[in-house]
Design a protein around this nucleic acid. Structure first.
Lengths: 196, 196
DNA sequence: TTGCCTCCTTACTAATTAGTAAGTAAGGTT
DNA sequence: AACCTTACTTACTAATTAGTAAGGAGGCAA
């Protein structure tokens, strides 16, 4: 035994590291097994097929995001909440320059199973939904200034953060911070705007 | 022969389709060979190792972008040029929902060769440089309104377009258009801004 | 016509992939 | 004591991977 009862969770943990670092097609059951000091058949015992593991990874991300939403509800005001959303991604960047789950899911979208795709779609919608609510409430309270509809800015912000995280891999972390700083600058209240 | 003299280019064309659709780790020499009706060893003849093919793909993208920059110089004004930049990505979206080269390169960044990484970095910098110039000139001529520095907005716009293209895979094309429309809305001159 | 060069095929290798089947050791239940 | 379940290991398959080596067919040049 020795391997103990939380092997299943440990597999998911190792798989998640590999996944966000190398992509779904960039790791195998052998990589996971080697890191845990078990045999790849043991991984198959817990997750018979790789798509089972893949779905479990995305579903765990969804549950984690749902719990994050609950925790984040306690933060008050638009900016602390937006910063919390950005902080999720900042953690990926700092942790060996990983990317966010939706980023990798989208990039490899045409190589994953239907069920993974469904989960990926749900996760993306949940994140976009949260951002939309954030911007609707933020405008109502006068914390943030933007044109158009809340779901529009939400889409821009979601895409920007995901894109910035990826681009930072190629050109360095400074690029992420430049992007985020400017994104926030554009959203700030009313200030003496620099124009033409 | 029959196979003709442009086999090398045909290989690159097929590889590019597969690459932008399934990712670098999502296709093999056999996929390319089968589509062209040749043997995979013939692909190795032209591109001995897969990383040679990979570098060739990125380098061609860089040359293509450089030519695009020259062509685009003839367009006058900020908005037609920005629309041209977006149109590049729109084409990827419409062509079987592909993603942009930098998007896939960033996602699989830790699984590609050093030389591919170098090329990817260059391509990213070239695109960001072009956008930066676009925003600097656009502000000078009063065509566009933004806070902060040109390279900041350029980073935001680059990240947004790349992110939006990927996200559209999961939730549909409408998401790309929503994002782009709102991005442009935020950049428009001065209008009767919707505030709090 | 001899020989070389280009572009390909046939025929392989060695490694890695996902996945399965059968067996086993430990612990709990009856 | 007999038995079942959980969590593995050993040992395998079949497919696919990148990559190589040797050979052949056609065109071109001397």
């Amino acid at each position: 035994m020795a391997g103990r009862t939380d092997t299943k969770r440990e597999i998911l943990d190792v798989a998640e590291q590999l996944w966000l670092h190398r992509g779904y097609n960039g790791f195998s059951y052998q990589h996971i097994a080697k890191q845990l000091g078990i045999k790849s058949a043991a991984v198959h015992y817990h997750y018979p097929a790789k798509q089972d593991l893949g779905v479990a990874l995305v579903e765990r991300m969804r549950r984690r995001f749902a719990r994050w939403v609950v925790r984040t509800a306690e933060l008050d005001g638009f900016w602390p909440k937006l910063d919390a959303y950005i902080a999720i991604h900042q953690v990926y960047l700092d942790d060996d320059s990983k990317v966010c789950p939706t980023g990798i899911l989208d990039a490899e979208f045409h190589t994953i199973s239907d069920e993974m795709r469904r989960s990926a779609r749900e996760l993306t919608r949940e994140m976009h939904g949260w951002l939309t609510t954030l911007f609707r409430d933020g405008r109502e309270k006068g914390d943030v200034c933007f044109r158009g509809e809340p779901d529009g800015v939400a889409a821009v912000v979601g895409a920007t953060v995901q894109g910035a995280l990826q681009i930072a891999r190629a050109v360095g972390r400074g690029s992420f911070h430049l992007t985020i700083d400017h994104l926030k600058l554009q959203l700030r209240r009313r200030e003496p705007t620099v124009d033409a």
